[in-house]
Amino acid sequence: MAFLSKGVHSMWRSTKLLQTLLPQVSQSFLCSSSELSSSSNSESESSDSLESASHVIDTERIRNRKLLYPPQHSCDRIQSWVSTLSRLQDDKVGIIDLHPSIFGVHPRLDIIHENIKWQQKYKNIDFSRVRTRAEMPGGGRKPWRQKGTGRARHGSIRSPLWNKGGAAKGPRGPTSNFYMLPFGIRVLGLRTALSCKLAQNDLHIVDSLYIPAEDPEYLRDLVKSRAWGYSLLLVDDNDEVPQRLANALQQIPEYNVMPAYGLNVYSMLKHETVVLTLSAVEKIEERLLYHLHRSGCVQQKFRLPL
């Protein structure tokens, strides 16, 4: 319900904003890149020009990126383009190496299934509950005497054999479905989901989450022009979302943003396209490679935090 009402609300707001904010948006298009002037429909002054001009793509960082635990043989090499959200068209600003044991593992669909089922189940509480014969009203009196009537012997009208009797082995909620997936399976699930997304061309890497305009139409146009599909998941290392992006995403329910520590298999599969920033890629690789290469046992007994 919350999701629905958010959608309706955002539709109303976006139509209103279309009338008010479009001029502003196209100004920032103009100042961010000159080629965009043809696609924008406005010609008014810019107040965001300083901020737009101040966004610099850190190409040095893209070029100098080094892999932790570099792969042992060269046929494992996996590369990806780095694009930017600061321009509408899909300009490539660099190319980076991705770690093959994070982004190039075999597509284990069974592992993905295990992770999805676990995420759906572990926080689910089953509240279904039916009454037993003891909880039903009445039924204390023997309906007829034991012998002599010619009928079957019965002691209670709420016996499970009776119509409108109590349930013999019904659900007795609330029941917790909590269980913990083995740690190695969870790590492999993240690696598999990232690899599958990359192999299907549904994972893209951008330099940062900077966008020049807070109008949701800018993001919609960007996603449409790059054929990123219906839904979008943006992942950054930082859990503070830039103000413009936050304002834009507030009005588009199918586009979401998430910090790297919240990345999970369910969300990656729920959204059609996953967009990682360069910092997020580095963070994800660092954390997953730590678990792949750390000393001692990876699988440790899970204890609920008390």
Binding site: H293, R294, S295
Partner: peptide
């Protein structure tokens, strides 16, 4: 002290 990573 125990190492946190397996050395290369």
């Amino acid at each position: 002290l125990p190492k946190s990573f397996v050395p290369e």
